[in-house]
Design a protein around this nucleic acid. Structure first.
Length: 493
RNA sequence: GCCCCCAUCGUCCAGCGGCCUAGGACUCCGCCCUUUCAAGGCGGCAACGGGGAUUCGAAUUCCCCUGGGGGCACCA
């Protein structure tokens, strides 16, 4: 099955991994992490990262989800070498387009006696499961209600519909060495004779996924722990096809802050929701990588290149990690501060324009660039930026609490009036000149920095919280600064 | 009910028989810096789930218990 092209020059089988989401939902953070681990492993081992669409469930798959998954992956920067939209040696990477291949495999399995037509009714199966469970046994269906092969063939020939089930060999057991979980064994009495082909002729997940892993030459199946107990089915199928089993790697699942399975009620689970909230892809990737893996030393902020170099599947943690946005937020702040001012302006500009409801002209863009470094230091999320720079581009509203807290204090009126007067006549408008002017004023008026400067902040920005004052005033410009000071002065009188 | 997996600070990780009076990061709390808010610096609180066993020695190995998670579909 494995072709020569998959062999590296040193004779080692080259790594081929796949990320195979099904378009029945948005790409969520757990999926993102699984994709990332596949990506890191492939990149670090000179391997091939494949994106496949496990869309055998036509009823639940939608184009909206298909698009979301691709966009989310691209946003994260997890580019794939083969698969959806980029193509490769396989004709198609969509399972919905490989139906005949699955049907052929199933036909072969039936011919070999490794699978059989099943006519058991849902009611029969239901009752069987109830009874075996009540009897303290595993509710695994073993084909006990099925007719003989000859009879089955006759009924099929007569046009009756049936599912096809894989005949799990019993007694028996399947053991495999999972890279993160070590040796795992399942007794076949725990494994159901699972359906591989539905009565409508479409394959189930187990069949399609296994056939594809074999056909695509997947060497390492890296996926969520929810599939751990399905692995015997996949191994049995693989070997029934005469193929060699892949190496399995089951990643623990992501939990919500309450330790329960991560779900909507914990907040956003969709990757793109984080983008929209103002998270940076780099921060997200860094955070996700550390949820279950560490580079081994004390580093927590680590570049993608370093991650690739140091990532090691065998050191991935076995225990489920809680997805906690607190640390993600901190990390996002770190990444925002690391951005170049240009990159930051580019990222934040649409947000600012959206907030203003209009575009920024060149002069305003220059102002934004000027203040950008100061905003970067104060933002944990890109989406916080608009509120911080709003006073530079639009009309201000006074925050009531801020006003009451500062403008009614002793010296506030004098400071505002004095600043208006002095700033109006500053010769060269610069941060240094503004600072010098105002500091001189503080001395002249015998005001502390707190008493003399805070009122100015409220006057020009509307709030007692803003980027640093001298820079803000400088960026605002002389005319508007003086106008705002005068407006405040009138309001205070 | 049955099977499988997991178990170190509130959270994410380090630790792979002695280097552990258990280390780092986030959070939280002090202090410093300071025109606000941040950022930064310094310091602090905080954990090996319980019980056996092995061993000269156990967070590290084994067993049991407890707790958490996953699975048992014509979903993936």
């Amino acid at each position: 099955m494995k072709s020569d092209s998959q062999m590296k020059s040193d004779g080692q089988m080259s790594v081929r991994v796949r990320f195979a989401p099904s378009p029945t939902g948005f790409l969520h953070v757990g999926g993102g992490r699984t994709g990332l681990y596949n990506y890191l492993f492939a990149r670090g081992n000179d391997g091939t990262f494949i994106l496949r669409s496990d869309d055998t469930d036509a009823a639940r798959s939608t184009d909206e989800f298909r698009v979301d998954i691709l966009e989310s992956l691209r946003w994260l920067g997890l580019d794939w070498d083969e698969g959806i939209e980029v193509g490769g040696p396989i004709e198609t990477y969509r399972q919905s387009e490989r139906l005949s291949r699955y049907q052929d495999v199933v036909a072969g399995l039936v011919a070999d006696g490794k699978a059989y037509y099943s006519f058991a009714t849902p009611e029969q199966l239901d009752q069987f499961r109830k009874e075996t469970m009540a009897a303290g046994q595993a509710p695994s269906y073993d084909g006990r209600f099925e007719p003989t092969a000859e009879e089955a063939a006759a009924r099929i020939a007569a046009g009756e519909s049936a599912t096809v089930r894989f005949a799990v060999p019993r007694p028996g057991q399947t053991t495999f060495d999972d890279v993160v979980r070590d040796t795992v064994t399942f007794d076949h009495v725990q494994v159901d004779d699972f359906v591989i082909l539905r009565s409508n002729g479409t394959p189930t997940y187990h069949l399609a996924s296994t056939v594809d892993d074999v056909d695509f030459g997947i060497t390492h199946v890296i996926r969520g722990e929810d599939l751990l107990s399905s692995t015997p089915k996949h191994i049995l199928l693989t070997e029934a096809m005469g193929a060699e089993r892949a190496t399995y790697v089951h990643l623990s699942l992501l939990m919500g802050p309450d330790g329960k399975k991560l779900s909507k009620r914990h907040g956003h689970t969709a990757i793109k929701a984080y983008r929209d909230e103002g998270y940076l892809a780099d921060a997200m990737v860094n955070y996700l990588a550390l949820l279950g893996w560490s580079p081994g030393d004390d580093n927590t902020v680590i570049s993608l290149a370093d991650m690739i170099e140091r990532f090691d599947l065998s050191t991935v943690s076995k225990n489920p990690a809680i997805f906690d946005t607190g640390k993600l937020q901190w990390m996002n702040g770190v990444y925002i501060r690391e951005m170049s001012a240009d990159a930051f302006v580019a990222a934040v500009r649409p947000l600012v324009e959206g907030d203003l409801g209009r575009g920024l002209d060149d002069a305003e863009l220059a102002t934004l660039a000027e203040i950008a470094p100061l905003v970067q230091e104060r933002a944990k999320l890109l989406t916080e930026a608009p509120a911080q720079v709003r006073f530079l581009f639009g009309d201000i509203e006074y925050d009531e609490t801020s006003w009451d807290k500062t403008m009614t204090k002793d010296g506030a009126a004098e400071a505002v009036a004095g600043a208006a007067e002095r700033l109006a006549v500053v010769e060269t408008w610069s941060v240094e000149a503004v600072e010098e002017t105002l500091r001189t004023m503080l001395v002249d008026l015998e005001l502390s920095a707190r008493k003399g400067l805070q009122p100015l902040r409220v006057a020009i920005s509307g709030s007692s919280v803003s980027p640093p004052l001298f820079e803000s005033i400088t960026a605002l410009g002389r005319d508007r600064t003086v106008a705002r000071l005068n407006t405040a002065k009138v309001k205070m009188a």
